[in-house]
């Protein structure tokens, strides 16, 4: 495959079978390897699409400053694109995110504003909204409410899955901004409505839920519950156990959030087996494990890994 530039090389990721993790010959799991995107994560799709749409709408002009609350991957994608396109990027990032993510952001030239660990990404969103008010000339693409985020998956990820696997019965993905699932969900509701759309969200340690009051809670503006069929909360222990199984049995080195998604997918697979049906279940692998090596999640006992992830934003 040949592309004019890195920015054109987003998407069209491989879909690979997981024969050893699949519970039966006719209940199959498949992984969509989104780590094969230009900066190594699924967020390249959303970030580039948000930039392209903002340019089309005239919101972004040469030399503009971009501002974005992000726990990492979206920031990294935006930083690469901003560098190539000549924009300045300011990322607001919770301080309890891995060092690799910060280094990558700095390498691509982004400036990082840290937000407090307590409250997790909610705090990053709040700090970013405050900065946006103070700097009205900055452009906040705002991944949590930008329809271009979901559109990237409605027009990209969803159709790619259906083309590669017409017999698809389930798609399981992580829930963060909700963009991936909103786009894929809407695509399948319109084109193959019997496909079950399953969300897996990371369950963090108490620190991350340390809001001052419940009114500070946050539901992304993009989220539409009608586009998914089930939603599971997966803790670090199950996520780490599954991400290690994925490497051990299938040779795939994935990020920790993919372990959470795989955990939910395997539960779906077992339900299908119990019901005596067949299935082709797609697992969206958001990124590789490289950025999370320093967390300690890939070595030692599960107990130790669980301890080390306590309080971290690991997805």
């Amino acid at each position: 495959m040949r592309f004019a530039s890195l920015l054109d090389a987003v998407g069209q990721t491989p879909l690979v079978g997981l024969p050893r993790l699949s519970p039966a010959p006719d209940v199959r799991l498949w992984a969509k390897l989104e780590d094969r995107n230009p900066t190594g994560s699924v967020k390249d799709r959303a970030a580039l699409r948000m930039i392209v749409e903002a340019e089309k709408d005239g919101l972004l002009r040469p030399g503009a400053t971009l501002l974005e609350p992000t726990s990492g991957n979206t920031g990294i994608s935006l930083a690469m694109a901003a560098k190539l396109k000549g924009y300045r990027l300011v990322c607001v990032m919770p301080e309890n995110t891995s060092e690799e993510r910060r280094q990558l952001l700095r390498m691509w030239g982004a400036e990082i504003v840290s937000s407090p660990a307590a409250g997790g990404s909610n705090e990053a969103v709040r700090v970013a909204k405050r900065l946006a008010e103070e700097h009205p000339d900055w452009v906040m693409l705002y991944q949590y409410g930008n329809q271009a985020n979901a559109l990237a998956h409605y027009e990209g990820t969803g159709p790619e899955i259906l083309a590669d696997l017409p017999s698809v019965t389930h798609v399981v993905a992580g829930l963060g901004t909700t963009g991936t699932l909103m786009g894929i969900g809407r695509f399948f509701r319109e084109h193959k409505p019997d496909v079950t759309i399953v969300a897996a969200e990371p369950r963090y340690g108490e620190l991350v839920y340390g809001l001052r009051n419940l009114d500070e809670g946050f539901v992304p503006e993009l989220y539409d519950a009608r586009l998914i069929d089930a939603r599971f909360s997966v803790g670090p222990r199950d996520a780490v156990r599954r991400v290690r199984e994925l490497l051990e049995l299938e040779g795939i080195f994935a990020g920790i959030s993919t372990g959470a998604v795989l955990h939910a997918a395997i539960a779906q697979a077992h339900q299908v087996v119990k019901a005596g049906r067949t299935a082709d279940i797609v697992v969206i692998m958001a990124d590789g494990g490289w950025k999370y090596l320093s967390t300690g999640a890939y070595e030692g006992t599960l107990d130790a890994a669980e301890d080390t992830l306590e309080g971290q934003l690991w997805a």
């Binding site: 991957n73 409250g119 990404s121 963060g176 839920y209 809001l211 939603r231």
Partner: peptide
């Protein structure tokens, strides 16, 4: 529970019910 009938969701002995505030990901 919002995908299992919300407040009408069935529960039974031995279940674990977890309450969490909604937080952002991404």
């Amino acid at each position: 529970v919002r995908f299992r009938g919300g407040l009408g969701a069935e529960v039974s002995d031995g279940d674990v019910v977890t309450v969490l505030p909604a937080v952002a990901g991404g």
